[in-house]
Design a protein around this nucleic acid. Structure first.
Length: 562
RNA sequence: GGGCUCGUGGCCUAGAUUGGACAAGGCACUGGCCUUCUAAGCCAGGGAUCGCGGGUUCAAAUCCCGCCGAGCCCGCCA
């Protein structure tokens, strides 16, 4: 089956050739998407009108007469545009047959044999995740799912910062302070120790020295200390993992920063860069050019210890040996860091490929989230609220469910809403967190998608489709519009993967669900005569497969009934 | 002060990579639709000088310049 993209390419080439032959000119052909009612692709004739000084209707006619295209059912001139109508109906027969034969497998792309190391989240293991950086795991995980669909071998990484000052403070606090903490979830449980240690440190320079000592031990590769620290930090990490797992985010690998010290990767970086390293007052740096400006990047402090940046170079070098392409999902504050990092890495490995997805922080109406000022919404709280809201909504509509069924459904709906409401917005756009929007279950929200899926499932539970589908039995415009939308799925996935913009998938999901809901309201299925019924069941079947696949790609559950 | 990003109806978002046909959705608002496959839905309606000012072009939300406003960054922190 030719993809929509290929059909577009064919149109473009056909016009280009026709114009070259008929008018002996070589011009750039720009094919665009016209508004509703003007076909599926269009070519503006302005350039030719201007060049030939002739009526667009005549030019259009001449082009139409001289080209032949497959999968195009109609071409016509309208004003200054040449419009093409794609023969979606014959494409639809093949598409739906594929789905009948192979199920959701029909929607995947061939294996590419390209290994992608996708790093995301990587929050410091010193406390629970909050919504401020909450976009990271959701965007990162969804990108991973999209790339897998496209045939990449994806390995997701969480880089655990156990070498910095913050980690040392938490470790000190947990080891030395006695507190009565009434909290089961591990990431929340350790917060008071961290806070108390920070407080003591400000007042007492001796404690600051103790913390310093931990850092030096870690830096020096003291394996015993490093492992002890990992045990404590690992508790917080377990809490973080528990939160993430609730919203379907899981990692293939947790890479501990201190591993780079223990396995000599940091030393190796310094060795590889030794010709470029310069000295200043006992500290060492190299120079890189970013945006035409020379920047000093320090690698070794004057006390001989390495910096986060140094270890990050080492980490990326290690990753580049594990995979062919690297992708990092980072907060906007890391932008300059990432630019410099890439420049340094290029000095070591010319052809290194790193793509970075940046997102801006989620803030509160009162301003930036800040744990210190207590102005913060934890991801756990957002998830809990969303699940509670989902429960209320379920109870409003369903009196037939048992308690466990309600709980399980509420979890699926609530967590889906959390993912979707973050996912649907372009990552570089700033986002102000408002409860009423975060808990929106209507319009472009995940319950809207899950609802359309459940409706389709419900029809198919009552009667099954036997696999027959014919374009000739499509009657209603809403059926055709649904078919068109279904056919766009793979193009959207590719587009979204190419640009690393998962919100495009989210937008498409709303369009698709919407076209199904319109179909649902316009076209009865079960009440129809046998042949129409079977045909419509085919549409419902295909929609259910595609929507299920879409929701999975976004990490959202798709219950059979809601 | 310098750099990066963003600015689209009352609110939120798409459209910007490739300039094109009346700027597209959602929330909120007004009115209609459950004896028919799940009303978390569907239909209809009002509501936008696309931050402001210039420029390029037959054509600008989109490209260029300037300004204003918001966020982020400018450590031998992470």
């Amino acid at each position: 089956m030719p993809s929509i993209e290929i059909i577009k390419e064919n149109i473009k080439n056909a016009i280009k050739n026709a114009v070259r032959e008929k008018y002996s000119i070589d011009i750039k052909i720009n094919i665009e998407k016209p508004p509703e009612g003007y076909g599926d692709f269009s070519y503006p004739l302005f350039d030719l009108v201007k060049f030939l000084r002739r009526d667009p209707a005549d030019i259009g006619r001449e082009i139409i007469d001289s080209i032949r295209l497959e999968n195009i059912e109609k071409m016509e001139v309208s004003g200054n545009y040449l419009n093409f109508y794609v023969d979606y109906l014959s494409l639809s027969e093949e598409f739906i047959r594929n789905i009948w034969e192979r199920g959701s497998e029909a929607l995947n792309f061939e294996k590419k044999n390209i290994r992608v190391i996708l790093e995301h989240t990587s929050a410091n293991p010193t406390g629970p995740l909050h919504v401020g950086r909450g976009r990271n795991p959701i965007i990162g995980d969804t990108i991973g799912r999209i790339l897998r669909k496209c045939g990449y071998d994806v390995e997701t990484h969480y880089y655990v910062n156990d070498a910095g000052r913050q980690s040392a403070i938490l470790v000190y606090g947990y080891k030395n302070i006695k507190l009565d903490v009434n909290e089961k979830k591990l990431d929340h449980m350790l917060v008071p120790y961290y806070q108390k240690a920070n407080e003591l440190m400000e007042k007492n320079p001796d404690i600051a020295k103790e913390v310093e000592k931990i850092m030096m031990d870690v830096e020096g590769g003291n394996e015993k200390i490093i492992m002890e620290n990992r045990e404590i930090l690992g508790k917080v990490l377990d809490g973080i993992r528990e939160t993430l797992s609730r919203i379907n985010v899981r990692f293939d690998k947790f890479y501990w920063e201190t591993e780079l010290i223990l396995n000599g990767s940091v030393k190796r970086v310094l060795e590889l860069l030794k010709d470029e390293i310069k000295e200043e007052e006992g500290a060492y740096y190299i120079e890189v050019e970013v945006r035409g400006k020379k920047e000093k990047v320090f690698l070794i402090r004057k006390d001989g210890t390495s910096l986060y940046f140094t270890r990050d170079i080492a980490y990326h070098l290690v990753k580049s040996e594990m995979g062919d392409e690297l992708i990092d999902v980072l907060g906007e504050d890391h932008k300059p860091h990432a630019e410099m990092l890439l420049q340094v890495l290029k000095k070591i490995k010319k052809d290194i490929s790193i793509r970075t997805v940046f997102y801006s922080f989620v803030s509160l109406p009162e301003g930036r989230m800040s744990t210190r000022r207590g102005r913060v919404v934890y991801l756990d709280d957002l998830i809990d609220e969303a699940v509670d809201k989902a429960r209320e909504e379920i109870i409003k509509r369903r009196s037939d469910l048992k308690e466990e069924e309600i709980s399980s459904l509420a979890e699926k709906i609530g967590t889906g809403a959390v993912r979707f409401n973050i996912l649907k917005i372009q990552s570089e756009k700033k986002l102000v967190f408002k409860w009423e929007e975060a808990l929106n279950f209507e319009g472009d929200s995940s319950p809207f998608l899950q609802y359309s899926y459940a409706r389709a499932s419900s029809i198919l539970r009552k009667e099954s489709w036997k696999g027959n589908f014919s374009r000739n039995l499509l009657r209603d415009p809403s059926e055709i519009s649904l078919v068109k939308n279904l056919l766009n799925y793979q193009e959207i996935i590719l587009d979204s993967a190419r640009e690393l913009r998962p919100y495009k998938v989210a937008k498409y999901a709303v369009d698709l669900a919407s076209s199904f809901n319109i179909f649902y309201s316009q076209c009865p299925v079960l009440r129809e005569s046998e042949d129409i019924k079977q045909n419509r069941l085919g549409l419902v079947y295909a929609f259910r497969i595609v929507m299920g696949d879409l929701l999975e790609t976004m990490g959202i559950e798709h219950p059979e009934e809601i």
